[in-house]
Simulated assay, not measured.
Amino acid sequence: MTIELICLDADDTLWHNMRHFEIAEQALLEILKPFADAGVTRERLEAVEIRNLALYGYGAKSFTLSMIEAAIELCGGALSVRQISEILAAGRDLLAHPVELLPGIEETLDALADRGRLVLVTKGDLLHQEAKLAASGLGDRFHGIEIVSDKNADTFQRLFTRYGVPPGCAIMAGDSMRSDVLPALTAGAWAAFVPQALAWSHERAEAPAAHERFRQLKSLGELPDWIDQIR
Protein backbone atom coordinates (compact mmCIF):
# COMPACT_ATOMS: atom_id res chain seq x y z
CA MET A 1 0.00 0.00 0.00
CA THR A 2 1.46 3.34 -1.08
CA ILE A 3 0.36 6.64 0.44
CA GLU A 4 -0.56 9.04 -2.37
CA LEU A 5 -2.48 11.76 -0.53
CA ILE A 6 -1.24 13.40 2.68
CA CYS A 7 -3.92 15.46 4.44
CA LEU A 8 -2.86 17.86 7.17
CA ASP A 9 -4.78 19.88 9.72
CA ALA A 10 -3.76 23.53 10.13
CA ASP A 11 -4.51 24.97 13.59
CA ASP A 12 -2.09 23.57 16.19
CA THR A 13 -0.69 21.20 13.58
CA LEU A 14 1.11 23.72 11.36
CA TRP A 15 0.81 26.86 13.49
CA HIS A 16 -0.11 27.86 17.04
CA ASN A 17 -3.80 28.44 17.64
CA MET A 18 -5.19 27.40 21.03
CA ARG A 19 -2.80 29.66 22.93
CA HIS A 20 -4.61 32.64 21.40
CA PHE A 21 -8.03 31.28 22.40
CA GLU A 22 -6.65 30.84 25.91
CA ILE A 23 -5.65 34.52 25.98
CA ALA A 24 -9.14 35.56 24.89
CA GLU A 25 -10.72 33.29 27.48
CA GLN A 26 -8.50 34.73 30.22
CA ALA A 27 -9.64 38.20 29.20
CA LEU A 28 -13.26 37.08 29.57
CA LEU A 29 -12.56 35.61 33.01
CA GLU A 30 -11.10 38.92 34.13
CA ILE A 31 -14.01 40.94 32.72
CA LEU A 32 -16.57 38.71 34.45
CA LYS A 33 -14.64 38.42 37.71
CA PRO A 34 -17.15 40.65 39.57
CA PHE A 35 -20.01 38.34 38.53
CA ALA A 36 -18.70 34.75 38.61
CA ASP A 37 -15.62 32.78 39.57
CA ALA A 38 -13.36 31.42 36.85
CA GLY A 39 -14.65 27.85 37.01
CA VAL A 40 -18.27 28.89 36.57
CA THR A 41 -17.39 31.17 33.65
CA ARG A 42 -15.36 28.45 31.91
CA GLU A 43 -18.17 25.92 32.27
CA ARG A 44 -20.78 28.32 30.95
CA LEU A 45 -18.60 29.39 28.03
CA GLU A 46 -17.93 25.81 26.96
CA ALA A 47 -21.62 24.92 27.21
CA VAL A 48 -22.55 27.93 25.08
CA GLU A 49 -19.82 27.15 22.53
CA ILE A 50 -21.04 23.60 22.04
CA ARG A 51 -24.67 24.72 21.91
CA ASN A 52 -23.80 27.25 19.21
CA LEU A 53 -21.77 24.97 16.94
CA ALA A 54 -24.80 24.10 14.82
CA LEU A 55 -25.55 27.81 14.36
CA TYR A 56 -22.16 29.52 14.17
CA GLY A 57 -19.76 26.68 13.38
CA TYR A 58 -16.14 26.74 14.51
CA GLY A 59 -13.62 29.56 14.70
CA ALA A 60 -12.77 32.87 16.32
CA LYS A 61 -15.96 34.68 15.31
CA SER A 62 -18.12 31.90 16.73
CA PHE A 63 -16.02 31.95 19.90
CA THR A 64 -16.47 35.72 20.26
CA LEU A 65 -20.25 35.47 19.90
CA SER A 66 -20.26 32.67 22.47
CA MET A 67 -18.21 34.77 24.90
CA ILE A 68 -20.77 37.58 24.66
CA GLU A 69 -23.69 35.17 25.02
CA ALA A 70 -22.11 33.44 28.03
CA ALA A 71 -21.44 36.83 29.64
CA ILE A 72 -25.07 37.91 29.20
CA GLU A 73 -26.32 34.63 30.68
CA LEU A 74 -24.04 35.01 33.70
CA CYS A 75 -24.54 38.73 34.28
CA GLY A 76 -27.92 39.57 32.81
CA GLY A 77 -28.68 43.29 32.80
CA ALA A 78 -25.66 44.00 34.98
CA LEU A 79 -23.31 43.60 32.00
CA SER A 80 -22.31 47.07 30.82
CA VAL A 81 -21.69 48.36 27.31
CA ARG A 82 -18.05 48.89 28.30
CA GLN A 83 -17.69 45.25 29.31
CA ILE A 84 -19.29 44.05 26.07
CA SER A 85 -16.82 46.27 24.20
CA GLU A 86 -13.94 44.67 26.11
CA ILE A 87 -15.15 41.20 25.12
CA LEU A 88 -15.38 42.30 21.49
CA ALA A 89 -11.83 43.67 21.73
CA ALA A 90 -10.62 40.26 22.95
CA GLY A 91 -12.36 38.71 19.94
CA ARG A 92 -10.73 41.16 17.54
CA ASP A 93 -7.32 40.37 19.02
CA LEU A 94 -8.06 36.69 18.44
CA LEU A 95 -8.78 37.39 14.78
CA ALA A 96 -5.70 39.56 14.32
CA HIS A 97 -2.99 37.56 16.08
CA PRO A 98 0.22 36.84 14.14
CA VAL A 99 0.64 33.37 12.68
CA GLU A 100 3.48 31.48 14.37
CA LEU A 101 4.57 28.23 12.74
CA LEU A 102 5.32 25.26 14.95
CA PRO A 103 9.01 24.24 15.02
CA GLY A 104 10.33 22.46 11.94
CA ILE A 105 7.12 22.73 9.91
CA GLU A 106 8.68 23.94 6.67
CA GLU A 107 11.29 21.18 6.68
CA THR A 108 8.61 18.61 7.46
CA LEU A 109 6.42 19.81 4.59
CA ASP A 110 9.41 19.52 2.25
CA ALA A 111 9.91 15.91 3.35
CA LEU A 112 6.21 15.08 3.03
CA ALA A 113 6.00 16.61 -0.45
CA ASP A 114 8.46 13.95 -1.61
CA ARG A 115 6.02 11.27 -0.45
CA GLY A 116 2.67 12.38 -1.86
CA ARG A 117 0.31 15.22 -2.71
CA LEU A 118 -0.27 17.53 0.24
CA VAL A 119 -3.79 18.73 1.01
CA LEU A 120 -4.64 21.13 3.82
CA VAL A 121 -7.88 20.12 5.56
CA THR A 122 -9.04 22.65 8.13
CA LYS A 123 -12.34 23.75 9.60
CA GLY A 124 -13.53 27.12 10.82
CA ASP A 125 -14.38 30.54 9.47
CA LEU A 126 -13.48 30.71 5.77
CA LEU A 127 -12.14 34.29 5.78
CA HIS A 128 -10.05 33.80 8.93
CA GLN A 129 -8.60 30.47 7.80
CA GLU A 130 -7.70 31.94 4.41
CA ALA A 131 -6.04 34.91 6.14
CA LYS A 132 -4.00 32.65 8.43
CA LEU A 133 -2.91 30.48 5.53
CA ALA A 134 -1.81 33.55 3.57
CA ALA A 135 0.09 34.90 6.58
CA SER A 136 1.78 31.54 7.13
CA GLY A 137 3.43 31.59 3.70
CA LEU A 138 2.68 27.86 3.32
CA GLY A 139 -0.11 27.98 0.76
CA ASP A 140 2.02 27.19 -2.29
CA ARG A 141 3.24 23.97 -0.70
CA PHE A 142 -0.20 22.34 -0.95
CA HIS A 143 -1.78 20.61 -3.92
CA GLY A 144 -5.19 21.48 -2.49
CA ILE A 145 -6.80 23.59 0.23
CA GLU A 146 -10.00 22.35 1.86
CA ILE A 147 -11.68 24.67 4.38
CA VAL A 148 -14.74 22.87 5.68
CA SER A 149 -17.48 23.58 8.21
CA ASP A 150 -16.81 20.31 10.03
CA LYS A 151 -14.73 17.16 9.69
CA ASN A 152 -16.53 13.83 9.67
CA ALA A 153 -16.26 10.57 7.75
CA ASP A 154 -18.39 11.92 4.90
CA THR A 155 -16.07 14.93 4.60
CA PHE A 156 -13.08 12.67 4.11
CA GLN A 157 -14.87 10.27 1.77
CA ARG A 158 -15.84 13.17 -0.50
CA LEU A 159 -12.30 14.51 -0.32
CA PHE A 160 -10.73 11.19 -1.34
CA THR A 161 -13.17 10.89 -4.23
CA ARG A 162 -12.41 14.45 -5.36
CA TYR A 163 -8.68 13.75 -5.46
CA GLY A 164 -9.13 10.32 -7.05
CA VAL A 165 -7.43 8.36 -4.28
CA PRO A 166 -8.63 5.17 -2.54
CA PRO A 167 -8.99 5.76 1.23
CA GLY A 168 -6.28 3.20 1.93
CA CYS A 169 -3.82 5.36 -0.02
CA ALA A 170 -4.55 8.49 2.04
CA ILE A 171 -3.39 9.65 5.46
CA MET A 172 -4.65 12.42 7.75
CA ALA A 173 -2.55 14.03 10.47
CA GLY A 174 -3.68 16.50 13.10
CA ASP A 175 -4.02 17.36 16.77
CA SER A 176 -7.70 16.48 17.20
CA MET A 177 -8.74 12.92 17.96
CA ARG A 178 -12.38 13.82 17.34
CA SER A 179 -11.99 15.76 14.08
CA ASP A 180 -8.78 14.51 12.46
CA VAL A 181 -8.19 10.93 13.54
CA LEU A 182 -11.48 9.13 14.13
CA PRO A 183 -13.37 10.34 11.02
CA ALA A 184 -10.38 9.63 8.76
CA LEU A 185 -10.13 6.08 10.12
CA THR A 186 -13.88 5.59 9.67
CA ALA A 187 -13.51 6.72 6.06
CA GLY A 188 -10.87 4.02 5.54
CA ALA A 189 -7.71 6.15 5.62
CA TRP A 190 -4.64 6.11 7.83
CA ALA A 191 -4.48 8.64 10.67
CA ALA A 192 -1.73 10.20 12.78
CA PHE A 193 -2.48 11.95 16.06
CA VAL A 194 -0.05 14.76 16.92
CA PRO A 195 -1.21 16.02 20.34
CA GLN A 196 -0.47 19.51 21.60
CA ALA A 197 -0.28 20.76 25.18
CA LEU A 198 -3.41 22.89 24.79
CA ALA A 199 -6.55 21.23 23.47
CA TRP A 200 -10.25 22.05 23.57
CA SER A 201 -12.06 19.36 25.55
CA HIS A 202 -14.66 19.08 22.77
CA GLU A 203 -11.96 17.74 20.43
CA ARG A 204 -10.82 14.99 22.79
CA ALA A 205 -11.78 11.34 22.47
CA GLU A 206 -10.34 7.96 23.36
CA ALA A 207 -7.44 6.95 21.14
CA PRO A 208 -7.98 3.82 19.00
CA ALA A 209 -4.61 2.51 20.15
CA ALA A 210 -5.05 -0.98 18.68
CA HIS A 211 -6.15 0.21 15.23
CA GLU A 212 -3.69 -0.93 12.57
CA ARG A 213 -4.00 2.34 10.61
CA PHE A 214 -3.46 4.61 13.64
CA ARG A 215 -0.28 6.05 15.10
CA GLN A 216 0.36 8.67 17.78
CA LEU A 217 3.38 10.84 17.00
CA LYS A 218 5.43 13.16 19.19
CA SER A 219 5.59 15.73 16.40
CA LEU A 220 4.59 16.12 12.77
CA GLY A 221 8.27 15.65 11.95
CA GLU A 222 7.82 11.91 12.62
CA LEU A 223 5.17 11.56 9.90
CA PRO A 224 7.52 11.05 6.91
CA ASP A 225 9.15 8.04 8.59
CA TRP A 226 5.79 6.47 9.40
CA ILE A 227 4.67 6.94 5.79
CA ASP A 228 7.85 5.15 4.69
CA GLN A 229 6.96 2.25 6.99
CA ILE A 230 3.46 2.06 5.49
CA ARG A 231 5.02 1.74 2.06
Rank of each mutant, 00 (worst) to 15 (best):
T41Q: 11
I230F: 01
Q216P: 05
I31H: 01
E49P: 02
R231E: 05
A96D: 11
L94R: 08
D37G: 08
K123P: 07
P183E: 07
A170N: 03
F193D: 05
W15V: 13
L101T: 02
P195Y: 03
D11A: 12
R215N: 01
E73H: 02
M172N: 09
I230C: 00
R141P: 05
D228F: 05
F156D: 10
I145V: 15
E22W: 12
Q229V: 10
G144H: 12
G77C: 04
E222P: 03
F142E: 08
H202L: 14
L8T: 12
M177I: 13
A153Y: 00
A191Q: 10
I84S: 12
E212N: 11
V48S: 02
L120P: 11
T13R: 04
V194R: 00
E43F: 00
A71Y: 02
P208T: 11
I23W: 06
A210D: 12
A89R: 15
D37A: 10
T186K: 13
R162A: 15
L112I: 03
D37M: 04
L8I: 08
F63N: 02
R44A: 09
T64V: 01
A210R: 07
A38E: 10
V121C: 15
A135S: 12
H128R: 09
A36E: 03
E69S: 06
I230L: 09
G139Q: 10
A199K: 08
A70G: 08
L126G: 13
L74M: 11
D125V: 06
A197N: 06
D154C: 06
L102N: 06
A153V: 01
Y58K: 12
T2A: 14
E130F: 10
Y163H: 12
A47I: 02
L74H: 03
Y58F: 12
G77H: 05
S219W: 00
V40G: 05
A111C: 04
L8Q: 07
L118N: 05
G139Y: 05
L53S: 00
